[in-house]
């Protein structure tokens, strides 16, 4: 079992110039819980996710990880120092739609890099832990490969290994399977399911409704920068009351008919 973080998002707003990308978002995530963020494209899911590790600055409100405010020294106050922010980010893993592996390094080096530079481990120690993380995502036999020699599913699993090798207490996923060929989606979702079963707190932006239905503890629906509803998966995915959710699911189902 991992040590898992809680996330408290309160009255968060985000502006891109005049554009109001996040509107008064409130969301709390208990330790060890999996929350899926769903909603139409452009609704602010990635923006919200990226605010959680302050990859994107939120304009007002508070985001707390285990009670500690991220990004600012005080709510609405001065920005946190780079050093403090890096310390907080060490325990937050992130997985991107485009994998974002470092192409000049092997799979093993990709995973070991953070352990060496951020955690200060020796090369041998870092590589031993990196190898362990890669075995955990089923890539024990691909450690010497560069990303260009791996399939999309394997690359995304390396990216997950890179994050979990740092022993995070919270994992953020931004459409981790959207760039994958359909037959490679399953291998990545399985790794994520295993992580959820270990008790990791996870926030997952996804269009995989099956994953949301079966793995998530709660599903949050966003539209036009608003968090419309947060509830148990069945209540959002099967009996949504809000017409906006009904409309979204209708287009989703229509697209998946053939």
């Amino acid at each position: 079992m991992v040590q898992a973080s809680s996330v408290e998002i309160a009255k968060v707003n985000k502006f891109y110039g005049p554009f109001h990308a996040l509107k008064d978002i409130d969301l709390s995530i208990a330790p060890g819980k999996v929350t899926c963020l769903i909603g139409p494209s452009g609704s602010g899911k990635s923006t919200l996710l990226r605010c959680i590790n302050f990859l994107e600055e939120y304009s007002s409100g508070e985001i707390r990880i285990d009670g500690q405010l991220i990004g600012y020294k005080t709510p609405g106050g001065a920005k946190m120092s780079g050093r403090d922010l890096r310390t907080m980010r060490r325990s937050i893993g992130m997985v991107f739609q485009q994998f974002n592996l470092w192409p000049h390094m092997t799979a093993l080096e990709n995973v070991a890099e953070g352990l060496r530079r951020v955690r200060g481990l020796s090369r041998t120690e870092a590589e031993a832990r990196a190898a362990e993380a890669l075995r955990k995502v089923g890539l024990g036999d691909r450690m010497a490969n560069h990303p260009s020699r791996l399939s999309g599913g394997q690359q995304q699993r390396v990216a997950i290994a890179r994050a979990i090798a740092m022993e995070p207490k919270l994992m953020l996923f931004d459409e981790p399977t959207s760039a994958l060929d359909p037959e490679l989606v399953g291998e990545v979702l399985n790794v994520m399911k295993a992580l959820a079963a270990e008790g990791m707190t996870m926030v997952v932006v996804t269009h995989e409704m099956g994953f949301a239905a079966h793995v998530a503890d709660r599903v949050a629906f966003m539209e036009k920068g608003e968090l419309v509803a947060v509830d148990a998966p069945a209540r959002i995915l099967h009996q949504p009351e809000d017409p906006r959710i009904q409309a979204f699911l209708r287009t989703y189902h229509e697209r998946n008919l053939f």
Partner: peptide
């Protein structure tokens, strides 16, 4: 995204 991934792990 390559730098973002590095930022995200605290480099």
């Amino acid at each position: 995204g390559q730098s973002e991934a590095a930022v995200a792990i605290g480099m």
